[in-house]
Nucleic acid binder design. Structure first.
Length: 480
RNA sequence: GGUCCCAUCGUCUAGCGGCCUAGGACGCCUCCCUUUCAAGGAGGUAGCACGGGUUCGAAUCCCGUUGGGACUGCCA
C-alpha cells in the first residue's frame, strides 16, 4: 500500500513557518516513498476561515515548490458525511448528549480539584436538543497507545482522559472527529503533524476504533508528531507575536530553495557533512524516523547565512532574474511589501545593472539589499549617508585636497578599473597616504555611502562626466 | 492542578556503551587577504542540566530531581 499523507491547515491567518515546515516534511515523505501528498483545508470554522487566507496558503506552497497531488479539498464539503458518522456513533452509544454549561463544569471542577469534564451527563439520559453537544464516552479502564514513528509508543491511561466534546450543539463535529473522519475517508496512512496535536491523538484513535465497529474497518494511520518550532522564549511560535509569515520572508528576499533548505534542518539533520541540499537531495536523504524530539528555535541568522550561500551559488542571470522585484519598479508578478525603489523607471539602465550585478551578488544575504547597493547608479544625486558624509567629507581635513587631486588625475586617466586603481594608488603614494584613506571620500562622493560595490568598477559604470560632477559636488560639501 | 512531550556549545545539530581529551554548521572573537563592505583562508570561544544506579566502561541504558514546553474550548 503506497503511503498517503496530508497537510491539513486551517485558513485562520497567513501561512506561517510552522505550517511550511509541516507541509515540507509531509511532502518530502510522500515524494521519497512514491506516495501521495494531499492538501486539505480545514475550513469548518466559518467564523474564522476566510477566502484570502486560503489563497495565501496556495500561493505560499507554490512559492516553496510544494505541490499537492490531490486537492485542495475543503473539509466543509464533507460535513454531511461527518454528521452521518457522528449520528451513528451516537446511536451506538459511543457518544452521549451533554447540556452542561462551561461555568457549571468549572464550578464542579474547582470543588473536586481534579480537572476536565467530570462525566456528569454520562448516564443522565439527557435528550438531544439545540443546546446539547455530544461527548465521547472514554473507557474507564485500560489505555490507548499512540504508535509514533518519531517518538515511539506514547501511552495515555484512560482514567486520566475526560469525556471530551466531539460534536457541537449545531450537530457539526469538532476538529478531532472531523479531522479523523477525513483521514479515514481519504485513506491516509501517515499522519505527520505538529507535536501540539499529540494529546488529541489518543482521542482520535479511540473514535477511529469506535467507527471500525460500526462502519468500515480500517487500519490506524501511523503517527509522526514533529517537534514544535519555538521563539527565543522557547514558546511555540505565535502568529500574533512572532515574525512568522512566510510571505514576509519572500518579501525580504529569501530564496524559496534556501528557505526550504533551512526549514528541513529544524528537527532533522542530513547524514553527510553538507547541509546545503537541494529539494531533490532532501527527498533522497530525509528520514522521518530520524526527526528529533526536542523543539527547535527558528534562527533567522542561520537562515540568512544559508540564503547568502544560495545567492552566491547562482549564475548572474539567475540572480538578476530573482532580484527583479527589488530592481524593476512595477514589473513581475508581485511587489515586495515595505520596500521602496528610489529611482524612476526612466533612469533605470539595464546594462549598468548587469555590470554591477556580480559584485552585488557576493555582497548580500537577502535580495532586498540589492536596491540600496545600486541606487547610486540610477539617481541624479546619490542618497547621502549622513554619518559617512560627516566622517570622511566634513570632519576629515584631507578630504578637499584628496578630492581635488583626484579630479585632476581621473580627468586624464583611462576609465578601466585596473588603470583607475593604479592611478589612485600612485596619487596616494605621492600624497603619503594609504589607498584605503584616499578612496573613502571618493566613494562617499560617488555612491553616498562608505560601503558598497568595488569603487573602480563603479566609476567605470558612471563614466567620466558623472564622476567629475559628483566629485566636484562633494568638494563643496567637504568645504562646509 | 492533571495528562503528555522534551533536555549535547548562545543557536541548529552529529553522537544510538568503548572510535568522545564530544564532531560539524550559524553566531561571536582574532589574524590573513584587501579599493570600502562582503566573500574567501587560518585560528579561537563555548556544551553532554543535576543526582543516583546498571556496566570492566556511559553523552549514550534505567530511576529520580530540576528545568523547559504542549495540551487541558460546543477553535482548528
Amino acid at each position: 500500500m503506497t503511503p498517503r499523507v496530508r497537510f491539513a491547515p486551517s485558513p485562520t491567518g497567513y501561512f506561517h513557518v510552522g505550517s511550511a515546515r509541516t507541509s515540507l516534511f509531509n511532502w518530502l515523505y510522500a515524494r521519497q516513498s512514491g506516495g501521495t501528498f494531499i492538501l486539505r483545508i480545514e475550513d469548518t470554522d466559518a467564523e474564522r476561515g476566510r477566502e484570502e487566507w486560503l489563497a495565501g496558503i496556495i500561493t505560499a506552497m507554490a512559492w516553496l515548490g510544494l505541490s499537492a497531488d490531490e486537492g485542495p479539498f475543503r473539509q466543509s464539503s464533507f460535513e454531511l458525511r461527518h454528521r452521518e458518522l457522528a449520528e451513528k456513533l451516537y446511536e451506538s452509544g459511543f457518544l452521549y448528549a451533554c447540556d452542561c454549561k462551561r461555568d457549571q463544569i468549572d464550578t464542579r471542577t474547582k470543588d473536586r480539584k481534579t480537572p476536565g469534564y467530570d462525566g456528569y451527563c454520562r448516564d443522565r439520559g439527557v435528550m438531544r436538543s439545540e443546546t446539547t453537544g455530544l461527548r465521547f464516552r472514554t473507557p474507564d479502564l485500560g489505555e490507548t497507545v499512540v504508535r509514533d514513528v518519531i517518538r515511539g509508543d506514547v501511552v495515555f491511561p484512560h482514567d486520566a482522559m475526560e469525556d471530551f466534546m466531539a460534536v457541537k450543539s449545531s450537530g457539526a463535529p469538532l476538529f478531532p472527529l472531523a479531522n479523523m473522519i477525513d483521514d479515514r475517508e481519504m485513506e491516509i496512512t501517515h499522519v505527520i503533524r505538529g507535536e501540539d496535536l499529540l494529546p488529541t491523538a489518543p482521542k482520535q484513535i479511540l473514535m477511529w476504533q469506535a467507527l471500525n465497529e460500526i462502519d468500515v474497518t480500517l487500519d490506524l494511520p501511523a503517527y509522526a508528531h514533529l517537534p514544535m518550532l519555538v521563539n527565543e522564549q522557547r514558546k511555540k511560535l505565535s502568529k500574533r507575536k512572532d515574525p512568522v509569515a512566510v510571505e514576509s520572508y519572500r518579501d525580504k528576499g529569501y530564496l524559496p530553495q534556501a528557505f526550504v533548505n533551512y526549514l528541513s534542518l529544524l528537527g532533522w539533520a542530513p547524514k553527510g557533512k553538507d547541509e546545503i541540499l537541494s529539494l531533490e537531495q532532501l527527498v533522497e536523504q530525509f528520514r522521518l524516523e530520524d526527526v528529533n524530539h526536542a523543539p527547535a528555535f527558528f534562527d533567522i541568522a542561520k537562515m540568512t547565512h544559508i540564503n547568502g550561500e544560495y545567492l552566491r551559488a547562482m549564475t548572474v542571470d539567475a540572480f538578476m532574474e530573482s532580484a527583479k522585484p527589488w530592481v524593476h519598479p512595477d514589473e513581475g508578478d508581485w511587489v515586495p511589501s515595505d520596500h521602496e525603489i528610489p529611482w524612476t523607471r526612466e533612469r533605470f539602465q539595464e546594462d549598468r545593472w548587469r555590470v554591477i550585478a556580480p559584485f552585488v551578488q557576493e555582497r548580500i544575504t537577502m535580495l532586498s539589499e540589492v536596491t540600496a547597493m545600486i541606487d547610486f547608479l540610477f539617481l541624479e544625486t546619490p542618497r547621502f549617508d549622513e554619518a559617512a558624509v560627516t566622517k570622511v567629507l566634513v570632519n576629515d581635513a584631507d578630504a578637499v585636497l584628496i578630492l581635488e587631486r583626484a579630479i585632476e588625475v581621473f580627468s586624464v586617466t583611462d576609465f578601466v578599473p585596473e588603470v583607475l586603481h593604479a592611478a589612485l594608488a600612485d596619487l596616494s603614494e605621492a600624497m603619503g597616504m594609504k589607498l584605503r584613506k584616499t578612496q573613502a571620500p571618493i566613494r562617499v562622493a560617488l555612491t553616498g555611502t562608505s560601503v558598497g560595490p568595488p569603487l573602480f568598477e563603479s566609476m567605470v559604470i558612471l563614466g567620466l562626466d558623472e564622476v567629475l560632477k559628483r566629485l566636484n559636488a562633494a568638494v563643496v560639501i567637504a568645504q562646509g
